[in-house]
Design a protein around this nucleic acid. Sequence first.
DNA 1: GAAGCCCTAGGCATGACGCT
DNA 2: AGCGTCATGCCTAGGGCTTC
Length: 203
Amino acid sequence: MFWSRPKSSESPYFDVPDNERQAVTRELLREHPLSGQDVTNAVLDAWEDIFTSTIGVGRIGIDIFPTPQIMGFLLHELIPLRVSSSHNGWRKDSEASEKDLVFEPDLRFSTEVKTSSNSNLIYGNRSYGVENSGRGKKAKSGYYIAVNFQSWREAGRNQPRIRRVRFGWIDSTDWIAQTAETGQASSLPSIVYGSQLAIVFDD
DNA sequence: GAAGCCCTAGGCATGACGCT
DNA sequence: AGCGTCATGCCTAGGGCTTC
């Protein structure tokens, strides 16, 4: 299934045929101050940071095995710190309206971080995908770093690994809210994975 | 006007299950 | 096995209302 939703005129993919989207993505990433290697390094370093951490007398990975939810939260916090410590102009978000990773010199390069223990896919909140013009807290269009990591269960006796890192652009209109109002998930159509998110690391 | 409370929207996710 | 859909949990910010 390779369909696309209509793009608004504010999207960099507006009026771009599906088979030319990859070129637009390459151009978007070329303009970005961070390279794919920069992003990969920040993610892998942040991941290692988790396993060199202790909470009280408990060592993560030896005494403490946080749920994927918690591991995602830690990554979410540590990736911006890793980027800001090695690249000028970057800082972690300080307000809900900001993207997770803020680039002070030019806010359009600010980047959202999304993590999931799903092997391949990332998810947003249902509110991403429903019509709520102007009421959302932050712009959902923009640069994204998407990280898939292993859960403890999958890793078995080994230390869980980063499976995949993607870097690209997602428009707010790309998100598809699940139809049931009681649910909270939004997913992305396959064309977004195929043409708007570049794989910069694949384990 | 300040403080406190309640409720909802929005944000972060996961697990179960059916279909291909 | 992989993917899509649906159901669910927990937390926070903020608006609206009431009370002091």
